[in-house]
């Protein structure tokens, strides 16, 4: 089955961890992930500046590794990301901000990417918020 995974909650919200475990289980079960899309507070999971205490799971790093290891199409909503201070180098330059912090593997793009992925998948599975 083809899944699109949308994540809405903050990096340490339970749904963000569940989304990662779901994504891992989907691949392990032989399914395909069309795209992972971060929206709302979840955009902060794509910040390269998250720092977790040593004895806690580094959710940003865990997602980043999953995306890299499995060559996941990983998109962060650009409007939601700008509002919450997650910028790539292009946006940091455009808005004259001192730093870019989008972690490697993630791409900023529009909500159209969520809709496009929803058209290509069998199931859109959402994690976080309501």
């Amino acid at each position: 089955m083809k899944f699109t995974i949308a994540v809405f909650g903050a990096p340490h919200a339970p749904g963000t961890r569940r989304a990662l475990r779901f994504a891992q289980a989907a691949l392990a079960g032989g399914h395909e992930i069309v795209r992972v899309f971060l929206y709302r507070e979840a955009v902060q999971t794509a910040s390269a500046n998250l720092v977790s205490p040593q004895d806690e799971t580094d959710m940003g790093r865990a997602w980043q590794r999953f995306v890299a290891d499995n060559q996941i199409d990983a998109v962060v909503c650009i409007a939601a990301a700008l509002r919450r201070g997650v910028l790539d180098t292009g946006e940091a330059q455009r808005y004259q901000r001192p730093a870019a912090n989008l972690a490697a593997g993630w791409a900023l793009s529009g909500l159209g990417q969520l809709h496009e992925a929803a058209q290509q998948c069998d199931r859109l599975v959402c994690f976080g918020d309501q």
């Binding site: 929206y39 709302r40 939601a80 509002r83 909500l111 969520l114």
Partner: peptide, 15 residues
Amino acid sequence: LAAREALDIALAGGA
């Protein structure tokens, strides 16, 4: 932002 961001999904799909 929840209401605005929900509406943005609808508007983007409508586009």
